[in-house]
Design a protein around this nucleic acid. Structure first.
Length: 459
RNA sequence: GCCAAGGUAGCUUAGCGGCGAAGCGGUGGACUGCAGAUCCAUUACACGGGAGUUCAAAUCUCUCCCUUGGCUCCA
């Protein structure tokens, strides 16, 4: 299979360092506020990627860091008068709940920055010893000039990076030198060989990955916005500290999510958290929406596109239901089986080919839709056996497992969702009226229920 | 200014050198007492403009136009 590598800007054949074992690290959130749908886009994408790698037989260890010490957390705590640690724990908990809600379950280990301060300090010491970092009165900084490869991921050069800076810390050798350790004397702080303070932003990830994965591993992922400066800094730190290159074999970055064509931001008032979204939308529909665009492409969120996703997903769900129903009453064998076997294998192959090609979920979905269409057409004049129908259902479930759709359940707009005793009585009355062909009254009840947001579908 | 990602049917997206594809929408039909849902069929003068390379270009090169984003924190 092929994976697009941001480092080479090309698709490359995927070959982990250690046969079938894959070490995957994705930059997690800074827990100072609720996660938004842009985070969800990124983490759903990597969730799908992990699921597919496992489907292909790889043993994937997926690790994510949680940035629980950072300026944003400190500032927010000051604003709301909370303890930074409590604030971070609160939003970490909510983050985990949100991920679960959108079906992201594949992360094997979450590593908090604050649980790895000794590892961070140790890595900084190594960098100082090797001459890649220096101490000033404000902190410890990475000496960019000592790492000529700086900029290789984002394709920038040092000259460009050292201009246009504001509020330069004059103790630094170069404006682009970034903090490994910030010297502070107010909470929250930790002791270090350089006095009290706290870690810089970039160092936690390499300290964590070095601890659990070693200096080199397979895949590092994150949003497009992290390429510069965050991932660039990680490369500089880790490759300098270990003397080994490359730090990671495949850099994967997800595209942005925009809201109605604009960047999501608090000032524009179009900021949507996962919690906001799930108040009136099915998480599966959101997953479908995310996966109907390639993970590297920009994706535009709007009520309209979400609605389209809902209808598209339902089409697949309806077909799965239908195949399941047919299987209940199908014959043991049929002369049409050869036809269906070929159809199934044909589309399974196409589906897998698309997924193998840098996780092209939109292409893979289009094959599934073609399969759905062919099936529906065939059912008009062909009678598959129970066995082949079960094989078909198994394929859909497999597909659902990779994408994270629950195709085994009922479809979104099923009657099952209507409940309540009062409603049962009304439905019962309507049914009796309809049996007596009292159309006018029964239709009137139906339209009044519709006004209340309750849709009744007569069959 | 520099860098990046884009501009494909009404909408949302694949394709990225060799019959332009999927979903949604539209239209027609089946089903239904009706509506809806579902299914089938069909539709659509869609590759931003202009040059060039090639037997062949949506796909490669150049150029211009437009959109969004980054160059400070950001998934």
């Amino acid at each position: 299979m092929n994976i697009y590598n941001t480092m080479s800007r090309k698709k490359e054949q995927f070959k982990p360092m250690n046969d079938k074992r894959v070490k995957l690290f994705v930059c997690g959130p800074t827990v100072y506020d609720d996660a938004h749908i842009g985070h969800a886009r990124t983490y759903i994408s990597f969730d799908m990627i992990k699921r597919y790698l496992e489907y292909k037989g790889f043993a994937v260890f997926y690790m994510q860091n949680v940035t629980d010490i950072d300026d944003k957390i400190i500032n927010r705590s000051a604003e709301v008068g909370a303890d930074p640690e409590k604030l971070a724990r609160k939003f970490e908990k909510r983050y985990l709940e949100d991920m679960k809600a959108v079906g992201v379950e594949g992360v094997n280990f979450f590593a908090r920055a604050t649980d790895h301060v000794p590892e961070i300090i140790s890595q900084i010491e190594t960098l100082i010893e090797k001459g890649f970092a220096y101490e000033t009165e404000t902190g410890v900084y990475f000496d960019e000039a000592k790492f000529p490869d700086f900029g290789k991921l984002s394709r920038r050069n040092l000259e460009d990076l050292n201009v246009h800076r504001v509020n330069i810390d004059l103790t630094k050798k170069n404006p682009g030198d970034f903090a490994l350790w910030k010297k502070r004397d107010e909470e929250p702080l930790w002791d270090s060989p350089w006095g009290t303070g706290r870690p810089g932003w970039h160092i936690e990830d390499t300290a964590i990955t070095e601890e659990y994965f070693g200096p080199q591993y397979d895949i590092h992922g994150g949003g497009l916005d992290l390429i510069f400066p965050h991932h660039e800094a990680e490369i500089a730190q880790m490759e300098s500290a270990s003397g080994k290159s490359p730090m990671v074999r495949y850099w994967m970055h997800t595209g942005f999510l925009n809201v109605s064509g604009e960047k999501m931001s608090k000032s524009l008032g179009n900021f949507i958290t996962i919690r906001d979204l799930l108040e009136d939308h099915d998480p599966q529909v959101f997953r479908f929406f995310v996966l109907s665009t390639h993970y590297r492409s920009p994706i535009d969120f709007s009520e309209k596109t979400l609605e389209q996703a809902a209808k598209s997903l339902k089409r697949i769900q309806k077909t799965v239901e239908k195949v399941n129903e047919l299987a209940d009453s199908a014959a043991d064998n049929s002369e049409d089986d050869a036809y269906f076997t070929e159809l199934l294998e044909n589309y399974r192959t196409k589906f897998l080919e698309s997924m193998d090609n840098d996780f092209n979920t939109p292409k893979a979905l289009s094959h599934v839709f073609n399969f759905v269409k062919e099936l529906n057409k065939s059912f008009e004049d062909k009678n598959p056996s129970e066995k082949i129908l079960k094989d078909i259902v198994a394929f859909f479930y497999e597909f659902g497992e990779i994408m994270g759709f629950d195709l085994a359940g009922k479809s979104v707009a099923s009657d099952e969702y209507l409940s309540g005793e009062l409603l049962d009585i009304i439905k019962d009355i309507r049914q009796k009226l309809r049996e007596k062909k009292e159309w006018e009254l029964s239709d009137d009840i139906r339209s009044k229920l519709t006004d209340l947001g309750i849709d009744i579908e007569d069959n």
